[in-house]
Design a binder for these strands. Structure first.
Lengths: 237, 237
DNA sequence: TAGTGGTCTAGACCACGAG
DNA sequence: TCGTGGTCTAGACCACTAT
């Protein structure tokens, strides 16, 4: 079993310490030099791990002072890095339930065909999922994945309800990066019904095209999220 | 005149070559080794510059192949990094005009007072700006800045219409990072009027708290943007 | 096979902060 | 003043791509 690059192992280790409570919010981490000694790596490698934790909002670095665990927030969806819906929801993820609305093979709309680089008429697996938090609907997600990538997907369903895990295990495909468009839209028809919102009321609309490490399009996803679940982003200069 | 860290100089130099057309989309950049020699720096420094260009969506790196200038898009607003409205708009920024709606000193709402860490009753400079693209309104931005930070701000106005430049020059304050909440909201009252949208139609709502390098809150901003100008974000795993 | 980007080392000097 | 994070060096080996 290979765990990937060392800096990702360190990243996960510290993230685990934070989510398990071993490191409390406000705590100062050991200095980069000490962490380098503890993990038996050079300081540059520790810095790469801490840099990701910082951009994920888990820690704050203060020049001349130290690196601190940041304050937590509830009901949030962090989107600095690409991850599954559960990963984005962070601590709230345990309370998130998924209801499968649609699971079929079909010819996608033209815009999706283009983004997936399919020939006209080629089919794709079509998934519609409703995400619930505390029995309240929070988001509807519609996904299109090229049929030939994972032929059994519509028949066999998802591994642990996670599209990312399923793609990894069944097709050996790892999603590496994505480009995402965020806007506001009126909830209409089935979307409004599923989210239990008045027809025409505003929802967060996200269209995402995901790519593998070799820059092949893997998934086109369109989601509609209730406005009470804002996206949280940390931006650096 | 200090231009800051070398990697930022390299970053700007390559970004300039792309926006000026010296580097066309699809072109392959020189290899990291050659760039390191040309700029007279180590390869790690070049990599730091290329990493930012990649996360800004300006270039794509292909393992084993090279680094390429990515395809451009029009009417977009990239928000991978913190920047002024004009910087976010990229190539479209030349066509963006700003109309100042409000410029006053006032006691901000309680939520703003808290985020700016002001005492109850302390005043702040209040700015409301309307952004126009091709004579069409695209966004309303409301800003609150602690009065004591830049006492003359409401009287003297902004340097080149840029709040970031004004803060830098007049108060020596540089905004370094921000936390941003993105959601959807109905356009109401003055917002709907200014954006020329029907009352209640969806707009992108962004609330941003910006901080200095020493983590002091500098500005609370609330913006409402027309849905035809989506936020574009590149996400990495 | 040759060249590319991905990761990592073991140092170094600097700017910043807190006491 | 001293420890911290910010930047940078001059190498190294590896995985991947293209030929």
């Amino acid at each position: 079993m290979n765990a990937g690059p060392i800096y990702q192992v360190i990243n996960r280790d510290i993230a685990d310490q934070i989510s398990s409570g071993t490191l409390q919010s406000g705590d100062r981490l050991d200095s980069e030099l000490k962490l380098a000694e503890r993990y038996g790596v050079s300081r540059m490698t520790v810095r790469q791990a801490l840099g990701e934790l910082e951009s994920d909002g888990l820690v704050v670095r203060r020049h001349g002072s130290g690196t601190y665990v940041s304050e937590p927030r509830s009901l949030q969806r962090r989107v600095n890095h690409l991850g599954s819906f559960h990963e984005e929801m962070g601590l709230d993820s345990k309370a998130v339930k998924t209801r499968l609305i649609t699971q079929e093979v079909a010819v996608p709309p033209e815009a999706v065909t283009a983004d997936l680089r399919l020939s006209s008429g080629q089919t794709a697996t079509h998934l519609v999922r409703l995400r619930m938090l505390d029995k309240q609907p929070i988001a509807v997600q519609e996904s299109w994945i090229p049929y030939l990538l994972v032929p059994g997907l519509a028949r066999d369903g998802l591994t642990e309800g996670s599209l990312y895990k399923t793609l990894q295990e069944r097709a050996g495909v790892e999603i590496r990066w994505a480009e995402q468009e965020v806007t506001a839209a009126p909830a209409v028809g089935e979307i409004a019904e599923l989210l239990r919102l008045p027809e025409g009321s505003p929802v967060i609309s996200i269209r995402r095209v995901s790519y593998s490490a070799s820059n092949e399009p893997i998934e086109v996803a369109q989601s509609h999220t209730v406005p009470s679940l804002p996206l949280i982003v940390r931006l650096d200069r």
